[in-house]
Design a binder for these strands. Structure first.
Length: 766
DNA sequence: CACCCTCGAGTTCA
DNA sequence: CTCGAGGGTG
């Protein structure tokens, strides 16, 4: 159950008491709110139905919600997220497919992103193989992996990849796909074999399909991959049959005694039996010719009849494949070369400036929403004014966007041919967009402009409060982005509950009513301008209240979460959020001292430096009395951090934070600490070991793993290097695991990790 | 003083 | 995840 479900979702056109300046909600915003509501409703109903076998709404109601959502998404395609229920037709239909284990695990592939990385993989592989290698190169089709099971030449089952061990049975649908033989041609088939392939929709057919859907006034698909996925998961096989799905096979799973020696010969054999193989594969005998193949195909990737996102390179010789074996999740005898992330054109609508918790003013781009590599992008950071200049973009330009690291949108530059003269350049504002203070560089050489109003700037206070609640800080549930905003919101006539973080632990239920929580996108583009004449703040952009955690009520304490309260003619039910926040704040008061240090928002003091300081000094008083030199003597703390701490402590309003927190009962010391200088010894089974935890380790949360390493006397690190002693990797581990394997560092699973923590290196040395 | 590890800070979207 | 910069080491 999501947190949001605790709150009422409201459609309040004007949540701001100073109503005049606020424009009406746009149609788009109304549609967005409705789409969110519908999606929640549909998903909850589908979950109940498929997971727990119960109906919480009638079929008719469900259909109506689905139809309305489709309608909205048709009007505003941007609102159709990747996981929109309208994409998986029949709600969460997937859940109705039977789970079937694969006979042989369906592995994924490790990735390389440059020629250099590929060459070093090839070098290592040749070394490990102890022989020259013939490489089989093939296109990496952007589709859905499928496992086909043939028994004595007859197709007896088709399953999706699932988690690699167990897939979903989609046999009935696969049987309808053109070009997949139900019965193999020729003779000499094995008793039992698994064939791996990719289901996809050719680009041309995809466009055709979308055109047909459009004409039929049905909703269209955003890309061939989604479309193939949706088509394969139809409950009714007749619907699948109507879609232009294709198959290409590219591997084998379980198969006793393969009658040939090379993967390429396997393909030839499969083809002779009537299975579709790609005509693009090629066997090459040197890594450098493979590199050439990669760049050649990259240049013509869009002229191929289906979408590709890279090239797969395999060791052709099956005996060598066997010798090389596999890591926990991917074979060592194959690698995927991924082409650079998808690039998309869109329009640069505006450039605005946001201010973070440190006061840094960061320009960011607002772009016309577009789909890039899996999600809809609306914002992209521009780092600072020099970057804006360097990119050469003007407001109004058509620009090229891509996803860097597959997550963060990056603006590459303008499309100059599409300029029409109406574009204009961005000028860095002189003043803080939120508090109006004059922006200035922190030092001479500093490129970044900062808002000097550290104490009072609402943007900075909000950022700091949010940081206190964050995972690295005090981990206060219910104190995230929007709650921090609500607590510090300075829009008159509402006084913010907090002017600075000093009062955080003095908050009471009465104090936080009324507290309204605003949604994310509104915070991001928030901008307050002062009226020229009255100097009253104007709210330039409409705020939209989507939920509330409290409402001012006339009622005697103690408050009761379940109470219904009458305020004039209106009736409110108090939501749990406010009560939980107060309870969480109380719990936070006794969290570890290093978390307190992080929460003070001292520059350069993050979790690691804070731990070092907390260990050596044990209390805020000890830190206060110590000189900068004494601080800098601590390992991991240098002059800069030491001075930053001393400077922070010398500021009056910072001291006020410390004093008020203390007065409120916040524990600013390590209980039982022997005193300054006496570092708490870190004895344990893992003394002196540097351990990196990555991926999801069963039985540990991300931070839990770190804590466990420390508790065992080890040192947790965030990146893998040659100094690392062990890497504990769970499912979903990425580059760190790759790096560990490269460097030959022992890799442990959750089980091994637990043993290491209990018994030290001896326990896992075997 | 030049290098290599790490850490801190900022970042988007669901 | 990435970038820039702090801290430690040879």
């Amino acid at each position: 159950m999501s947190e949001d479900a605790l709150f009422e979702i409201e459609d309040v056109p004007d949540a701001n008491p100073s109503a005049e300046q606020v424009s009406e909600l746009t149609d788009f915003e109304k549609a967005q709110t409705e789409a969110i509501e519908l999606t929640t409703k549909i998903n909850e109903a589908a979950d109940a139905y498929y997971e727990r076998d119960e109906s919480i709404i009638s079929d008719a109601e469900y259909d109506m919600a689905m139809r309305r959502l489709e309608e909205i998404e048709k009007t505003y395609p941007v609102l159709q997220g990747q996981d929109s229920p309208t994409l998986s037709v029949g709600g969460r239909a997937a859940a109705t497919f039977e789970k079937v284990p694969h006979l042989e695990r369906m592995m994924s592939l490790d990735n390389v992103f440059s020629e250099e990385q590929f060459l070093s993989w090839a070098e290592k592989t040749e070394r490990d193989a102890g022989a020259a290698i013939e490489y089989l190169c093939e296109l990496k089709i952007d589709g859905l992996a499928i496992n086909l099971r043939y028994e004595n030449g007859t197709l007896t089952g088709a399953t999706t990849r699932g988690d690699g061990v167990v897939g979903e049975d989609v046999t009935a649908n696969v049987l309808t796909i053109q070009g997949i033989p139900h019965r193999l041609a020729g003779s000499g088939f094995p008793e039992l074999m698994e064939v791996r392939g990719e289901i996809y929709i050719p680009t041309a057919e995809f466009e055709e399909l979308n055109k047909r859907l459009l004409e039929a006034k049905e909703k269209t698909f955003s890309n061939p991959r989604n479309s193939a996925s949706g088509s394969l998961r139809q409950i009714d096989p007749a619907k699948t049959a109507a879609r232009p799905l294709r198959l290409l096979v590219h591997g084998i799973g379980a198969w006793n005694e393969v009658p040939v020696a090379n993967q390429s010969e396997v393909y030839a054999l499969l083809e002779s039996w009537g299975l579709p193989t790609s005509k693009y594969f090629k066997v090459l005998s040197s890594a450098s010719s493979v590199a050439d193949f990669i760049s050649e195909m990259g240049a013509q990737r869009h002229s191929i009849d289906h979408e590709i996102d890279g090239i797969v390179i395999k060791v052709d010789d099956l005996a060598i494949q066997k010798k090389l074996g596999a890591t926990s999740r991917a074979p060592r005898w194959a690698i995927a070369y991924k082409y650079p992330p998808e690039q998309v054109n869109t329009k640069l609508v505006d450039i605005k400036v946001s201010v973070g918790r440190t006061g840094r003013a960061t320009p960011f781009a607002i772009v016309e929403p577009v789909q890039v590599a899996g999600s809809v992008v609306e914002y992209a950071t521009l780092h600072n004014q020099d970057v804006v200049k360097a990119k050469g973009v003007l407001i109004g330009d058509t620009i090229v966007i891509r996803k860097a690291g597959d997550v963060i949108p990056e603006i590459l530059g303008p499309v100059l041919e599409l300029r029409n003269g109406t574009e204009y350049s961005f000028v860095m504002p002189e003043e803080c967009p939120e508090c109006g203070s004059k922006l200035a560089p922190a030092s001479e050489e500093d490129i970044d402009l900062r808002c000097p109003n550290t104490k009072g700037c609402p943007a900075q206070v909000r950022g700091r409060v949010e940081h206190i609640g964050s995972r690295g800080g005090l981990e206060i549930e219910g104190l995230g982005e929007s709650t921090a905003e609500a607590l510090t919101n300075p829009i008159p006539p509402i006084q913010p509950a907090l002017l600075t973080e000093a009062g955080l632990f003095d908050l009471t239920l009465e104090g936080i009513f009324p507290l309204e929580v605003w949604n994310y996108s509104d915070i991001r583009i928030r901008e307050i301008k002062l009226d020229k004449d009255t100097k009253e703040p104007l709210r330039e952009l409409p705020f939209r209240r989507i939920r509330k955690i409290g409402k001012k009520v006339v009622m005697d304490p103690p408050f009761d979460p379940e109470a219904e309260v009458f305020d004039g003619d209106e009736q409110y039910i108090l939501s749990k959020g406010a009560f939980e926040l107060i309870a969480e704040l109380e719990k936070a008061k006794t969290k570890p001292f290093w978390r307190m240090l992080v929460s003070l928002n001292i520059r350069h003091v993050g979790p690691v430096a804070a731990r070092a300081l907390a260990n050596h000094f044990g209390s805020i008083e000890a830190l206060d009395e110590a000189s900068a030199e004494e601080l800098a003597a601590v390992e991991g703390v240098g002059q800069i951090i030491a001075e930053s701490v001393k400077t922070w402590l010398s500021v009056d309003w910072h001291r006020e934070i410390v004093d008020r927190w203390k007065a409120a009962g916040v524990q600013l010391f390590v209980p039982g600490h022997p005193g300054p200088g006496a570092a708490v010894s870190s004895d344990g089974p893992c003394s002196g070991l540097i351990i990196v935890a990555t991926g999801s380790l069963e039985g540990f949360t991300r931070d839990g793993a770190q804590e466990a390493i420390i508790a065992a006397g080890g040192k947790p690190a965030s990146s893998v290097s040659k100094n690392t002693n062990y890497v504990a990797a769970g499912p979903g581990a990425g580059s760190k695991l790759t790096k560990a394997e490269e460097l030959g560092i022992p890799v442990l699973d959750a089980e091994g990790f637990r043993k290491l923590l209990e018994g030290g290196p001896a326990a896992v040395s075997s």
